[in-house]
Simulated scan of single mutants.
Amino acid sequence: MSSMKDTIRSIAIELFFRKGYFATSISDIAKGSGIQKASIYYHYKSKEELLFSILKSTMDDLTRYLKENLSGLEDIEAKIRAAVHGHVRFHLERQKENFIANSELRGLSRDHYRIIVERRDEYEEIFQDLIRQGKEQGVFGNVDVKILSYAILTLCTAGASWFNPGGRLTVDEIADIYENFIVDGLKQGGQCLYPPEAAHVMR
């Protein structure tokens, strides 16, 4: 059975996803959790701290998931495939948290914003290192490592904004589309890395 802190977090995720962080009040979260407004502050000091908790745990879980997917792999193409597939899968399976993470950063305090951005930078560096290895080994074309890492992550993250769980393709089928599209693009020097039409076929 989940704790009240977990219940509050779950309700907050649902409300932030549906209404937006700024349009959601502590009273809304308390009502959804079945407790008094004052009881929220026993678990979280503020609404902003609750948002930070959601964003931090999501980012930490994403990084852990990436490292697990890369564990034991040696071939660079296998690594980038696993990284891309896992990134897409994580963002679709935890759609609400990831949508919030990419749309509500402005709700964080300066210190909390810095912490999340630092974690994002560390995550991006893993992708950049993979692309750099592929470039140096001649597996990928002569690409701009940093720019391509941003393009790939932006492309793969966008699924959280349009994914329909009841759509005709499974999470893994969508991840396969992204995986093949991106690897083919990297091999061609990044020339064809433009957003696929997955958003339209899934609606």
Results as ranks from 00 to 15, higher is better:
D172K: 03
D144Y: 08
H87F: 14
L73N: 09
N102E: 12
T63V: 05
A82R: 01
E125K: 14
R64L: 10
A23H: 13
S161M: 12
T63I: 13
A12G: 02
R89M: 04
V143P: 05
T154M: 11
Y178M: 02
N142R: 10
G166N: 09
F140Y: 09
M59D: 11
L73M: 00
M1V: 11
S46N: 00
Y42M: 10
T157A: 15
N102P: 03
Y123W: 12
N102D: 13
Q133A: 15
S53N: 00
T24N: 02
D176A: 13
C156H: 10
K56I: 09
G141V: 02
E14R: 10
R119M: 15
I40R: 09
G190P: 07
Y41K: 03
L92Y: 01
L15Y: 04
E136P: 03
E77W: 01
G134A: 07
E14W: 02
F90E: 08
A199Y: 12
A83E: 01
R114N: 14
S46G: 08
S71H: 11
N69E: 15
V117F: 09
I131A: 01
E74C: 07
E14V: 06
W162L: 08
R120Q: 15
P165T: 10
A101D: 06
G134L: 09
R203S: 13
I147T: 15
S10P: 02
G159V: 05
D75S: 12
E97P: 05
T154C: 06
F90Q: 11
S3K: 01
S27I: 08
T58M: 08
G32C: 03
V84L: 03
L169W: 09
E49W: 01
Y41R: 01
S161T: 14
G34L: 03
A83M: 00
I152K: 07
N164L: 00
M4T: 14
A38I: 06
F99A: 12
